[in-house]
């Protein structure tokens, strides 16, 4: 059992990170903190992908005479794309947060909801 946990430690880390990230996205009231949570969540998935590409005894997938096995490069390539996506999501989110701050004067979710409710009641 212990071996099982230790030998797959990278997956465990990615699961832990995923939970932290999801918690941040859902529970935090500050909009920027939510974005941080989102980033942690996405990074955990990147870790997951990268660890899946690792092969025991494999080297980096660059041509080398002594190499016997190479790691699988495809997940790495995929994750490059995913990183780009993650960055653009973050950029869009931050841009929206800036606009929210300009229009509401705060980035605390509960205060914003309060403001919106007041407006609706009017």
């Amino acid at each position: 059992m212990f071996d099982f946990i230790v030998s797959k430690y990278n997956y465990w880390i990615s699961i832990v990170l995923m939970m932290i990230g999801l918690y941040g996205m859902i529970a935090k009231k500050n909009l920027v903190k939510k974005i941080i949570g989102m980033n942690i969540f996405q990074v955990s998935v990147f870790l997951f992908y990268i660890s899946m590409g690792k092969i025991k005894g494999g080297t980096a997938p660059i041509y080398w005479e002594k190499a016997v096995i190479y790691d699988n490069p495809i997940p790495h390539v995929l994750i490059l794309t995913a990183i780009v996506v993650s960055i653009s999501t973050t950029a869009v989110a931050l841009a929206i947060i800036i606009l929210i701050y300009k229009k509401f004067g705060t980035i605390e979710e509960d205060k914003i909801l309060e403001l919106m409710e007041k407006e609706n009641r009017r």
Binding site: V92, A93, K103
Partner: peptide, 14 residues
């Protein structure tokens, strides 16, 4: 619309 977009972004990203 900003808040709508932001919430959509969070849930959409999940």
């Amino acid at each position: 619309s900003l808040m709508a977009s932001y919430n959509y972004l969070i849930i959409g990203t999940i």
